[in-house]
Amino acid sequence: MPHGVIEQIPRFLTWYNAAFLLRAASFTLALSAVGSVVGILAGGAIAVLRRTRGWALAPLRGLGTLYVELFRRIPFLVTLLLVFYATQLGGYDMPLFAIGAIAVSLISTAYLAEIVRAGLASVHPNQWHSAAVANFSFMQTLRLVVIPQAWSVVLPPAFGFFIMFLKDTALASQVGVVELTYAGKTLNNRGFAPVLTFGAVLLLYFAMSYPLTLLGRRLEVLVARPRHR
């Protein structure tokens, strides 16, 4: 280990630095949470749209499919930069966090649309038939029959996705969003040893991601259990 690191530790472990990193970590969490919430709503809407029938909605269905297929093939960094530069074009002064949140949401919508689509597809077609012959409308079928059966299939991968974005939002540091990785870079620039700064950042990511991963695994077991026990 390079000399000087040990001596730096007391100067590094201050309340000020700790607060700075924790606040940044909360932005990482917030960014990921915003992405997941927007993603499940907008992605869910796209997945539902893709289940509709009839000519009237065909163009929208096509757009939905295109969106899902394309945005899962663009790196997050590129989406982020596109949003960053595109918002500058209009000349508005958009807060950096909002730029990060929009970029995360654009990508998460595509991924979660796929997850919800798989969830809807896991419900047997005969459930749709049974509802149809009793005059359920499309939305009634979804609300009363399909979604109550699909959510336990959707939840585990959606939660996994939330954890994935906890890590992937590290890239938002590149446009200046003060999340955890950016905070690490800042401390590094202030002259602290990279072992300490990036080491601390890695540990904080781990401290957020690992418990959530374990929770996700328990969640999976929990929702997979039959309703009646």
């Binding site: 005969n126 459930q127 049974s130 509802a131 012959v133 309703r227």
Partner: peptide
């Protein structure tokens, strides 16, 4: 469908 009802071979009860 308000006047006819059908029962399927596979019952197709709502599982939820």
């Amino acid at each position: 469908r308000d006047r006819l009802a059908i029962v399927f071979q596979q019952y197709n009860l709502f599982q939820n």
